[in-house]
């Protein structure tokens, strides 16, 4: 019977808040059904327990929904599944970053990478982008405080993403030579 009082905290009525997100997410063609909401709440419990964390007052789940619902990579078919993964990843990296980063900074970083370098791939977000960023934070990097988590990844990215010179060269090869 481990930490009953902690589990008690996690019994907050979250469903109503998730229900409210539907009215906003609808404009992007995304809606959570009642069973999806139940599933998300139950996954939240599981995720918090696995990561040995406890939520006070407001849960992060509605914030994740508001942050990601306008994503180009979310649709009604993958909506619940991706939200579940994002929630797991969020708690995992709060721990990995030793709680140095705020909720908003982490969400901004996650959303930006999800939309850009990850092209909606949560595995890449978790295993590469966040892993490298967490490593930098553990080593004492604090730049995200100024940037609020935006535009951070390029300095840690080990993959050369875009080379304008090479692009111009290829264009010339294809059309002018």
């Amino acid at each position: 019977m481990e930490k009953n009082w902690m589990e008690l905290l996690q019994q907050k009525d979250l469903l109503e808040k998730i229900r409210q997100t539907n009215s906003y997410a609808e404009q992007f063609g995304l809606t959570l059904k009642e069973e999806d909401m139940q599933m998300l709440v139950s996954e939240r419990q599981h995720s918090l327990k696995e990561q040995r964390r406890v939520e006070f007052g407001q849960s992060i789940l509605p914030k994740i929904i508001y942050e990601f619902c306008d994503s180009a990579y979310l649709n009604q078919n993958n909506y619940t599944e991706v939200l579940t993964r994002l929630q797991d990843i969020f708690f995992l990296y709060k721990n990995e970053m030793m709680d140095e980063i705020s909720d908003d900074e982490l969400l901004h970083f996650m959303k930006e990478q999800f939309e850009t370098v990850c092209y909606g791939d949560t595995e890449y977000l978790e295993g590469t982008c966040l892993s490298q960023f967490a490593q930098a934070i553990r080593a004492g990097y604090e730049g995200y405080r100024k940037s609020d988590g935006y535009g951070e990844y390029t300095q840690f990215d080990e993959v050369k993403r875009w080379d304008p010179e090479l692009y111009q060269e290829v264009l010339k090869d294809l059309f002018w030579r």
Binding site: L9, V54, F56, K63, F91, D99, S102
Partner: peptide, 21 residues
């Protein structure tokens, strides 16, 4: 506890590790 946790995290974090709680 919830009030103290909010004060400690400066409203920047909605969750904390078991050990901290």
């Amino acid at each position: 506890l919830a009030e103290l946790a909010e004060k400690v995290s400066g409203c920047e974090s909605s969750s904390m590790p078991y050990e901290k709680a």
